[in-house]
Structure formats: C-alpha cells, structure tokens
Amino acid sequence: MDPESLKILLASVITLGGIGFICGFGLAYAANKFRVEKDPRIAEILQALPGANCGACGYPSCAAAAEAIAKGVAGANLCKIGGAETTQKIVQILGVTTGPPADKAEKMLAVVQCGAGPEACDQKSIYVGEPTCAAASLAGGGFLMCDAGCLGFGDCVKACQFGAIHHESGRVPIILREKCTACEKCVAACPKNLIKMYPARQEIFVLCNTADKGAEVKKYCRTGCIACRICVNKCPEQAISMDGRIPEIDPEKCRRQKVCIAACPQKTIQQL
C-alpha cells in the first residue's frame, strides 16, 4: 500500500474514532451529570410483576402499574394474575405488611365444567347464526338439549390473552393448566357460566353443571352427571359430598386415588 492511501486511511480512522470517542465520552459524562433520580423500587417492582402487560389491573402496562404501586396510588395486591407470590415480593420491596389475608392467597385455575359439548350432547335445534357462544345462547338458550352445556364456539378462547385455552370448533375448550393465570376473563366470557375457579391443587373434577334430572340427562348426554351417587359412596376418603344436583369434591380430603373416576358410569369425573 502506498504511503498516501495509508495516510488517508489513518486519518479517517483517527477522525471517526475521535468523533465517536468524544461523543461516547460526552454522553457518558452527561448521563452521569444529568441523571434523574428515580424511585429505585419502580424497577424492582417491575421485575417482580409478570411482565405480560395484560391490562387486567386497569393500567396499560406492567411499567405503569409498577409506578402506581411505588407511588402508593395502587395497592401491593394490584396484579391479579401474579397472585400471592407477586404480592409477597412487592410487599417485601415496599416494606409494608401484607394487605390481604394469607388464606385468600391460594393460586386458582379455571376449569370448564362440561365434558360433553355439541359432540356428546343431543341437539334440540339446528343453529345457523353467528358462530359465537353468546349469540347461540341468546337464541332460545342454545341449540343443545342441555341448558347448561358448552356450545363449543370458543368465546372463552377469544377472551384469553395468554393463549391458555386450546379449542377445536364444536368441542369443549381445554384450559391449559400450566398457562392459566387466573385472570378470570374466560369466566366472564362464557354465557353459560360454565367456567369456574378452583384451587390449583385440585386435580379431579366433576365435569357437569346441569340442573336437569338424572333420567333426562341420561337420554340426551353421553357424559353428563346422572346423580347416581356412586362416587359419593365409593370414595375411600369421604371427599365427595352431594348437597345439590352435582357432586362436589373436597380438595382437602381428596388423595387422588381415582376411585371415583373408575366408578363413574358416565365418565363425568375426570382428572385434568
């Protein structure tokens, strides 16, 4: 390489490098000199929040929620989906005592209380309208013989912002328990009020919500509860009670021996 181009090369490198160095140094100095002191707890609270920016708390983002919590505008238990764990972390950051009582803090999960759907339930009419549960439900309470049954259009799927509901058209949606954040948006979306919140430790459920008599259910539904009380009698832990129409499983007593699942003649009781 001839000395002339080498000189230009060197001059270019030094000039640009110099400009870059001066800019970088100046910025670093400015960042330090003109630093705006912010509440350090905002960043910590933001770390503790789930970071989903779901808006369930009413703030547009987790960052906005963190700021509100740090300022004391909102409570430490603001985040609905983070639950007790998040609240506990935020409480520690803020140095305040826990607001909500500890027993309320249990993690909950949503469960669809129907095992049949249009597939396993006889239809009283043919529905050709708008393919949403809400619309179908308006038309005479739906097209199923069962007034409580899942209509299978998946309104809950659209409501879920966390992709926690798997759904094939015409079937009962499956809530993915590992993804469910208990934001309860699907609960509000279901026109049949089929989705209920259960403690996360409960694994065995009675997947039926009908109010009809057992003999009728037997006629139109392949998986509906017929109120035979076999599960109540068979359970070795007496964990199943039946005060109303549908048996209830007590998660405190249940030891997951699955006797009820095997005994149920309709296969209404399932482990999820």
């Binding site: 000039t15 640009l16 400009i19 870059g20 001066i22 800019c23 970088g24 100046g26 910025l27 400015a30 960042a31 003109f34 630093r35 705006v36």
Partner: peptide
C-alpha cells in the same frame, strides 16, 4: 457517516440534558 455519528450523539446528549432541566 461523520454527520450521522455527530447528530446522533448530539441529540442523545440534548435529550439527557432536557430530561434533567
């Protein structure tokens, strides 16, 4: 390239200062 460098640095600097002042 020199202009881009200088302008970017300058704007960033100004933003930092405005943020404070």
């Amino acid at each position: 390239i020199a202009f881009i460098l200088v302008i970017a640095g300058l704007v960033q600097f100004t933003e930092t200062v405005i943020n404070k002042i």
